[in-house]
Design a protein around this nucleic acid. Structure first.
Lengths: 315, 315
DNA sequence: TGTTGTTACGGAAAACGTAAATATT
DNA sequence: AATATTTACGTTTTCCGTAACAACA
């Protein structure tokens, strides 16, 4: 039994039981992976992988149990590295944040400069992806934490914590009829009125889009979604081109910079949303990660987060 | 980083930071242990052990964190072996029970025959020791579970569950004044009356002795404890020799077999005691271990026990 | 001065990659 | 036929024990 074998098992599971892929990801030879796994199976006395002839198709029943334990071991091994780095290179290291475009472009810029001043030696990476991908990145420990609004939650092993709340804003061109309204008229704007115009907003999986659909749906109003995009910059671009009205996250509209657009504060129509951070349960987080989270959401103190990631179930 | 290094670190901590001892326990050479640990320290970039020159005196701050993680890893590695044995040799294996003499001699015989019938291939070992030793054996995973009445509890990582309750009994020779009483007189026996005779009972750490002391102490009665022993058989022997009256666990007195003794049911004087099983939190238990516990205490179902040993904190 | 930890060194074992064989889709 | 896994084999590296050395108490 050795750590190498565990690494191979974990990677093989992650790569959907493709040894060749697993070997490639770990920069090693495929026969080596095969041999190591077979040796582990021999030592444990059980087959970990279900084989149809020579093709590996999935986990056996004992294999599932083994795989879960192996995951826990490898997670602790990762923690070992992180813990010692915490002492050896106190303020150095990497912080990988998986987030949506909205977060990367509008929310995180409000904290990253301060963070960099505190930890100039920490190498930051922002990885963008869909909320589903973000969750995967955190669970596979490719990212230390995820920030998103839509469904990060509910995968076992994933812990999410409320970060900040926000509302949508409607953006239109200055010459658009909606832009001509008095502010008292604007306050009374309804979903029906909005739905008279083509709508440009986020893709299904992003930035509170589900709340937008729900709001319209509950009133049985069905606007024409002419264009859906991952990020507010794209949406704003097409709004400026006159393709329709935009519904974007409030943080994504800045009256001073977005001079070609008028923002209508009708967030109430679509409800209030909570952006959340996602962390993998049971992982060790470097000191500066806690600091980062506190900068992003002062209510998420070190204690709150530590308590949340305590491993309560196996993940 | 490899499992060997982890094993060495764990053993070195357990052997009070004596590399020579650790090496001997693991049947390997001492320089090998030294080298492996140094290599691990180099790889992690931190010193794990506090050294005064060349003497290892304890854990450094990072070393403590490392040691805790290493313990968790090694525990999971042990689980891996157990899990696969569960499938590979479904009803074979070992069951090591750490218990006091009272348990081994009087309580466990009531369940072990039934257990052996169910799992004839399971090799049973009973290790006897003081309650403190029992706890250590479980924590070091030399024993699967511990059974005892006195202080098993409260070490972190140890989970205890109530097993069965019992009371003490006073035993005397048939010609002893106390044996001449009518049953109504016997029912009214007081601690003062008992204290008129020399008392033979358990050693401080065993079988509810603390409750005996407490009972006498609370009435400010101070009997003459002429002899203290670990087990009831020894106590009964000396009672038969006329050295005094015996106070032993109720289970240890059988009127049919102990023909040379008369039992007085005065358990109420010393309160009711609960024997408990102790298990290490976070360990995997073989199927037959759950069965054994259910035989011993039907209320401790598999679900109850599994729930109890779920790792809530690090141990 | 005895005990304990580190360094040096050499033989044995295992780890790993290339090549070939075999099985699956 | 193409893709995927296992077997075979030889080189390289790592492992591990003995011996020698160094430092504490």
């Amino acid at each position: 039994m050795n750590l190498q074998q565990f690494k191979f098992v974990r990677e093989t599971v992650r790569r959907d039981f493709n040894l060749t892929e697993a070997a490639r990801m770990l920069y090693t030879s495929q026969p080596g992976v095969s041999k190591a796994i077979i040796e582990l199976e021999d030592e444990l006395g059980v087959k970990i992988f279900e084989r149809h002839g020579k093709r590996i198709k999935g986990l056996t029943k004992p294999g599932l149990a083994v795989s879960q334990i192996v995951d826990r071991i490898m997670r602790e091994v990762d923690n070992l590295k992180k813990v010692s780095d915490e002492y050896a290179r106190r303020d150095e290291g990497g912080l990988t944040i998986a987030c949506t475009h909205t977060q990367a472009r509008y929310a995180l810029p409000q904290v990253i400069p301060a963070f960099r001043k505190l930890f100039p030696k920490v190498h930051l990476s922002l990885i963008q992806g869909s909320p589903g991908q973000l969750a995967d990145m955190v669970l596979n420990e490719q990212a230390d934490l995820a920030v998103a609004t839509e469904a990060l939650a509910l995968t076992p092993g994933m812990v999410t914590l409320p970060c900040y709340t926000w509302e949508h804003v409607v953006v239109v061109t200055p010459d658009h009829p909606l832009a001509q309204m008095t502010s008292s008229q604007a306050r009374k704007l309804t979903l029906e009125q909005l739905a008279q115009y083509p709508v440009i907003t986020y893709d299904r999986a992003f930035a509170g889009r589900s709340a937008i659909d729900q709001a319209f749906g509950s009133q049985d109003v069905h606007p024409d979604f002419v264009l859906e995009a991952i990020d507010a910059d794209v949406i704003k671009t097409y709004v400026e081109l006159g393709l329709g009205i935009g519904i974007i996250a409030g943080v994504a509209y800045d009256p001073r910079r977005d001079t070609g657009l008028v923002g209508l504060p009708v967030g109430r129509l679509f409800g209030t949303h909570t952006s959340r951070i996602g962390v993998k349960s049971g992982t060790f987080l470097r000191d500066y990660v806690y600091t980062f989270v506190e900068l992003l959401a002062p209510s998420l103190t070190r204690e709150v987060v530590q308590n949340a990631i305590k491993p309560s179930d196996q993940g």
